[in-house]
């Protein structure tokens, strides 16, 4: 569905991507992993057109999307930090996004699902961090679109809400959508991911299923696998099995 080709991006002297290639070929939950600063958020922002890559192309359903705007109709996005225009009320921000996107939405169901009913007329500035994140989730899920981008969606959520969010993601996945996700909670990745994308040193270091990753690293959980990759470096893993990079061979 979405293909990144030869993406280069640096912020000043700091190189983030150097010839990054990635093919999100089918629906399902894609977890983007990598050490801090490896470009997980940047990758998402490039997809959304928030960050402009220095070079490269991105195709979505076969069409070039860089410097376009309307393709974003097909993408729902939940940003990392949820801060909104302070004086708007919850009801208004939902109406606003709805108004801007002009797509059918089932915000009522979502508001009920996250117990936001009593907050609808509260200005956003008076909401707690967790409640804001719930609003953020409503905004990201209320439209029915084939791609959902979730940047650290679980920050500040209580266990109950986290559970609800997981269910929601699962439901969306079951509709055949492509869900691109970053999170620091390895448990969540292990639980719901179909595909893992591991970013390291400006490239996609690994792409494949969780089992593949365990196999290649010889570990039996995600945390250890990641640690292994980061500790032993690329060469170590590289020599271990060619399959890690075989996708681009």
């Amino acid at each position: 569905m979405i293909t990144f080709k030869h993406i280069y991006k640096s912020f000043g002297k700091h190189v983030v991507f150097e010839d990054l290639n990635l093919d999100l070929e089918k629906g399902g939950i894609w977890s983007v992993l990598g050490p801090n600063g490896s470009g997980k958020t940047t990758l998402m922002k490039i997809l959304l057109g928030l960050v402009v890559p220095d070079k490269g192309t991105i195709l979505m359903d076969g069409e070039e999307i860089l410097k376009q705007d309307l393709y974003r109709k097909k993408i729902n996005y939940m940003p990392q930090i949820a801060r909104f225009p302070e004086n708007l009320k919850v009801r208004e921000i939902i109406a606003m996004i709805h108004d801007i996107r002009q797509q059918p939405a089932d915000e009522i169901a979502l508001v009920n699902r996250f117990d936001l009913g009593s907050y609808l007329d509260v200005p956003l500035k008076n909401l707690s961090g967790g409640t804001r994140q719930k609003v953020n989730a409503v905004l990201a899920f209320m439209h029915d679109n084939p791609v959902i981008v979730l940047d650290e969606p679980t920050v500040g959520l209580d266990p109950v809400t986290l559970l609800k969010l997981k269910e929601l993601i699962q439901e969306e996945k079951d509709k055949g959508k492509l869900i691109l996700l970053t999170t620091h909670i390895t448990g969540l990745v292990e639980e719901i991911s179909d595909q893992i994308v591991f970013l390291l040193e400006g490239k996609v270091f690994f792409q494949g299923t969780l089992d593949h990753l365990f196999q290649k690293t010889g570990q039996d959980n995600l945390e250890r696998s990641m640690a292994a990759i980061m500790e032993h470096g690329i060469s170590n893993i590289d020599s271990d099995d060619s399959k890690i990079t075989s996708h681009y061979a």
Partner: peptide, 14 residues
């Protein structure tokens, strides 16, 4: 309004 920008620029808007 940096965060607002981020929210809105992720929408189908020029």
């Amino acid at each position: 309004s940096r965060d607002f920008s981020e929210l809105l620029l992720a929408q189908p808007i020029k």
